[in-house]
Amino acid sequence: MDPYRVIEVKQSIFEDNNQDAERLRQQMKEEKTFLINLMSSPGSGKTTMLTQLIPRLKDELKIGIMEADIDSDVDAETISHQGVKVIQLHTGGMCHLDADMTRQGVMELGTKELDLVILENVGNLVCPAEFDTGAAMNMMILSVPEGHDKPLKYPLVFTVCDTLIINKIDVLPYFDFDMDKVTEFARRRNPDIRIFPICAKTGEGMDELAAYLKERAQNLK
């Protein structure tokens, strides 16, 4: 008998992850905890945006934050001063979180009593978009200095996100960033994408974003 056997597999490599993600989504739904996966490039202002968002929501929603990074705990340290539950996840060199890592984070954080959990994914516009984390909502930040052409260059992340935050609008006068163009390019990827222009430094636009996220989280109940 030939010692070699060929096994037909025909399975997407994302299939295991997609199943893990679906299980986690179901679990969070039963716990009535709204999980947001927040993605962006490094330096677009994810953590700063959270320091503006948390004070606007924490009286009405019990919030938990999961900070994912390759290394360090600088973001978790910043967020810990906001008076919400926070944990730091280390991906150990990997450029993204998958559903199983997210599930471990959720267990570590203890989400049963929480209304809203925000997962701050690794700063990267490529890999995090490919791995479903099991979040109920994908949200991303694009900051003005990065340029309005990013939906053309990183189409997948704009396709999987239903909410796009444009941060650092205070520096618009100094950059060739075209708000109409970014809207057009993003809608090409996702016709229903919601766009919130904000400045996380001054808080401009944050009330609208906070109200929208509160409504989404409460709709889960």
Binding site: P3, Y4, R5, V6, I7, E8, V9, K10, Q11, S12, I13, F14
Partner: peptide
């Protein structure tokens, strides 16, 4: 857009 494992050869 696929990334599929088509088959594997084992001993």
């Amino acid at each position: 857009n696929e990334v599929n494992i088509k088959d594997i050869t084992i001993e």
